[in-house]
Simulated assay, not measured.
Amino acid sequence: MPSLLLVVFILQLVLHIINTVGANTINELLWILYNKFPTPTHNAAQKVTALKRDIVRLKRELGLVSAQDDFARWAKLQRQHDKAMAEFQKLDSSLRTHQTRFTSTVATLRWLGTQGLRFALQFWFAREAMFWIPHGWVPYYVEWILSFPRAPLGSVSINVWGIACASMIALVAEAGRAVYVLATTRAVRQGVEKEKPMAFEAKPGAEKRPPKSEQKSSKKEL
């Protein structure tokens, strides 16, 4: 059985990922994955995708055909477009209904597996000590805060351990984001500096020589 310390840490990590990515984005990704498998909506989703491509193709062809010069072809394309659009709207409406039900189920399961599990663990292990602090390391009021609400005095409660895990995960995520931004900015700056033309400095003592015509004229004057 995994350690309770590790379970709380993983739970806080999952909550941080969900809050960072966004529940709606996760729901959309799960819906796409759900339709990839042989589910009741698999065939309908594949047909909706094919109809989207057909509608785009027919619209492009309609734009290239003139209704005055080639009315027969234009009318045929228009009928095909209207038929595909009607079928697409019907299937898409049915899929939207299934997606709403799917999203509601996923949201319920996600809450039970994250927030609900966190509340259950905090209630069930409220009197348990996650680990003990050596006696005399911190003052009495700090021991009372670390054991809040019902853990033994001198220990760290599951509530405080969860808050500590969430804070540490947030700090590490912010540090990683800052390092990524700095590295990206430095790479872009170096690329811009490489593209700039380099200016060559003239060697010290090097003087401009006069043109050959001026040299010949000066010799003649001498």
Rank of each mutant, 00 (worst) to 15 (best):
V181T: 13
K52D: 14
T103A: 06
S3K: 04
P210I: 07
S66Y: 04
K219V: 02
T100Y: 12
R127T: 12
G162K: 00
A86F: 05
K83P: 00
E193G: 03
R53E: 15
F131M: 03
T41D: 13
A175E: 11
L171H: 06
E207S: 02
N27E: 15
A45F: 10
G154H: 07
I158Y: 11
A151R: 08
K52S: 14
A126I: 11
D92A: 03
E87S: 05
K208Q: 12
G113R: 06
E221S: 09
N35W: 01
L15C: 09
Q215G: 00
P204M: 12
R73F: 01
K208S: 03
D69W: 00
Q46I: 08
F88P: 03
V181F: 13
P149H: 10
E128K: 13
L109G: 00
E201C: 07
Q78Y: 09
P149G: 01
G162H: 02
A166F: 11
I163K: 13
V21E: 13
L182G: 01
N159V: 07
Y140V: 11
I133H: 08
R57H: 06
R101I: 04
V181L: 14
R101A: 08
Q46Y: 06
I18L: 12
V106I: 15
K59Y: 09
V156P: 02
I163T: 04
E193L: 10
V172K: 13
S93Y: 03
L29E: 14
A166S: 15
T100P: 00
H98P: 00
G63N: 14
T97F: 10
L121H: 06
A50M: 09
I18A: 12
P40M: 07
V188N: 11
T105K: 13
V56L: 15
I55A: 04
F71A: 12
T108F: 12
E28P: 01
L4E: 08
L91V: 03
S147A: 15
L222F: 04
T49Y: 10
L171G: 02
V156S: 02
K208W: 10
W137G: 00
V160E: 04
L30T: 03
T100K: 15
A107W: 03
F102P: 06
R186C: 01
T184W: 10
I145W: 13
E61C: 06
Q99Y: 05
E214G: 00
R96K: 15
K90S: 08
E214Y: 10
L6R: 12
E28F: 12
S167G: 01
I163Q: 11
V192G: 00
D54A: 11
L182H: 12
K208N: 04
S157E: 13
S94V: 02
L117K: 05
K59W: 01
G22T: 06
W74T: 01
L109N: 02
M130L: 14
W161S: 08
K36S: 04
G136Y: 08
D82W: 04
Q12M: 13
I163F: 07
N19L: 13
